[in-house]
């Protein structure tokens, strides 16, 4: 009996030693020598693997940092300046400060109520629907409302608003990684500078149709009338292909253009309500209520007590 136990112990022990030796030599032979800095930097990066930097993931980005030795041309949009400072400290160089950005959905789409012209019954994928037809709202430029952007967002910052069926961005969560920008087959989402006090002015439409056609498609469409370009003190607005665009690097967020826009396509975000302008026509307001965008406060005549203006 005893020698059987001994035999088992010896056999197993010998096997263990043999495997250990083999493993040791294999590990030596195939050892990958890696700069420990890569691990350190990867640790600092957000680890969401969002691909916002253009690399395959956070580790690939860390490798790129170490390989390059400096930070030129490399930026982690998701981590922002805080992360870049940490990386800079590890690499021993100086990080350039950059404007914080945020994703902006430039469409007024609303998939409930009168605006819906047809019912889509197929695969819930924007890129497929885009190849099939114009979209439920009948706008061939606008949001399709099937949520590829929301699926692409790794930070829960972009969700489909159940009330309107359109995407909604949570500014605090958005890291401007750009995943949603790439996911949108119609190029509606844009990364824009967050702006001072998070105040931004932009054209909430990408419709390039001629005025009358665009207006027929959507009440809030940009009709390319060019009124906004005339009031802009900084020449930050350009109209091309019947579509106005506010250049965020030039815009000072004065908000003058917003009041000029006849369709409500120009919007200002995070502004305190300005002094009401009695001259506005009521025809403009109606469509605005149709497309409720919760986070957007459009300066418009409202019987609200105004404490101060921001100009």
């Amino acid at each position: 009996m005893a020698h059987q136990i001994m035999l088992a112990v010896i056999v197993l022990g010998a096997l263990g030693i043999i495997f250990a030796v083999v493993l040791y030599f294999v590990a030596q032979k195939f050892k990958v020598i890696e700069d420990p800095l890569i691990d350190e930097i990867a640790e600092v990066l957000p680890g969401a693997n969002c691909g916002g930097c253009g690399k395959a993931g956070c580790r690939a980005m860390a490798e790129a940092f170490v390989k390059q030795g400096n930070m030129e041309g490399l930026k982690c949009p998701a981590g922002g300046d805080a992360v870049m400072q940490k990386v800079a400290a590890l690499l021993g160089c100086v990080a350039e400060a950059s404007e914080p950005q945020v994703a902006v959905v430039r469409c007024n789409a609303c998939f409930t109520g009168e605006r819906t012209k047809v019912h889509y019954d197929g695969l819930r994928d924007c890129s497929f629907a885009n190849s099939l037809f114009t979209g439920e709202n009948g706008c061939q430029f606008g949001c399709l409302g099937l949520g590829n952007c929301a699926a692409a967002c790794q930070f829960d910052a972009l969700v489909m608003d159940p009330e309107t069926g359109a995407p909604k961005i949570d500014e605090d969560k958005c890291t401007a990684c750009g995943a949603c920008v790439k996911a949108c087959p119609r190029g509606i989402i844009e990364l824009r500078n967050k702006g001072r006090k998070n105040r931004r002015v932009f054209v909430n439409c990408v419709n390039k149709e001629k005025g009358a056609v665009a207006r027929k498609t959507c009440d809030n469409a940009c009709i390319g009338c060019g009124k906004c370009t005339k009031v802009c003190p900084k020449e930050a607005i350009k109209v091309e292909n019947n579509l106005a665009y506010v250049d965020y690097s030039l815009c000072i967020a004065c908000g003058k253009c917003v009041n000029e826009c006849p369709t409500g396509a120009l919007v200002a975000v995070n502004f305190t309500p300005v002094k009401p302008k009695p001259a506005e026509t009521p025809a403009v307001e109606a469509p605005k209520t149709e497309a409720p965008k919760v986070e957007i406060k459009i300066p418009q005549p409202e019987p609200v007590e105004v404490k101060k203006t921001n100009e």
Binding site: L123, D125, S127, S131
Partner: peptide, 13 residues
């Protein structure tokens, strides 16, 4: 299952 929709999407991609 919307098989053909998915296949079309896959073909495009």
């Amino acid at each position: 299952k919307p098989l053909l929709d998915e296949v079309r999407l896959g073909k495009n991609k």
